[in-house]
């Protein structure tokens, strides 16, 4: 009854598996999404030629930069952005530290779920949307910006902090509890000393991100250098806009370098 199975032939030039590979399929899907999106936003081939021309034209107006305006008006605005970022980061650090500790899934399985919800919600709000609410509450200006930055940073810092805590070896926690210490004391003496350097490094990293975030808050009137850039571009003062860009790039690079160096040292200690 049973017919002999045909011998499995292997074609050395043909790769085994389904006729269309996984990679091909992914490429195809991404391609469809991409070209569909291009068509949907009206990016036609003629725009393709238009765009570089427009960029080149605007760029040509940027030089020479009006650095006098830069020193007088832009630098104070950048300083304000830094101040906003600093206060925002401090607010977030103070709020997120306890949340990160009780957000540990290993130590507080029940509380952690609630903390995760809080941090996910806080992370979902871009700073600028929060600023939209804070501006009418505390008035136009940098204070609203700092609050917005602070609240929106809490989410990420809590999440990262809780991850640092959960990556810990919990033997020391057990050692503290075996010595008759409470869970709270275990947090203070076993967890905190072990995780604080990493957590502080995360604060610094968030400060770097917050400088960029605070730079754009001016767009909704929450202080900082973003408002200055928006105005210079709106009135087509490209030389002044160039000053904004140059100074922003320099200051952010400088702070990134300093902060990065400090972070490396903290982690190494």
């Amino acid at each position: 009854m049973t017919a002999p199975k045909p011998p499995v032939s292997i074609d050395p030039l043909k790769r085994p598996g389904p006729p269309i590979g996984f990679g091909t399929m992914v490429t195809f899907v991404i391609g469809v999404l991409f070209f569909g999106s291009l068509a949907a936003i009206g990016f036609t081939p003629d725009r393709l030629i238009e765009v570089p021309a427009g960029v080149a034209r605007v760029l040509s107006f940027f030089w020479p930069a009006d650095m006098a305006y830069g020193w007088d008006r832009v630098l104070p605005a950048i300083v304000e952005s830094i101040q906003i970022a600093w206060i925002g980061t401090i607010i977030a650090a103070i709020l997120s530290l306890p949340l990160a500790l009780i957000g540990s899934r290993v130590l507080f399985p029940r509380l952690a779920r609630g903390v995760k919800l809080i941090s996910a919600t806080a992370r979902a709000f871009p700073e600028i949307l929060l600023a939209i609410y804070f501006v009418p509450i505390v008035g136009l200006g940098a204070f609203a910006g700092a609050l917005a930055i602070g609240i929106s940073s809490v989410g990420m810092l809590t999440k990262l902090g809780a991850e640092v805590v959960d990556s810990l070896d919990f033997g020391t926690v057990e050692a503290v509890e075996a010595a008759g210490g409470s869970r709270l004391l275990a947090l203070r003496w076993a967890v905190l000393p072990a995780v604080l350097p990493e957590i502080v490094a995360h604060w610094l990293f968030r400060f770097e991100l917050n400088i960029r975030a605070s730079a754009v808050l001016g767009v909704v009137g929450a202080g900082g250098v973003g408002g200055v850039l928006l105005n210079t571009l709106r009135y087509r003062h490209f030389d002044k806009a160039a000053a904004v860009l140059i100074l922003t790039i320099l200051v952010v690079l400088l702070i990134d370098m300093l902060s990065g160096e400090i972070r490396r040292r903290i982690i190494r200690s």
């Binding site: 960029v55 605007v58 960029r212 973003g226 850039l229 922003t248 790039i249 690079l253």
Partner: peptide, 24 residues
Amino acid sequence: NILRTLPDLFWAMLFATAVGFGPV
């Protein structure tokens, strides 16, 4: 590194000025 210093909205402002308001 220089690309990284400028926030997304700065690029948006620049391109909106250069190629006109809109999704492009």
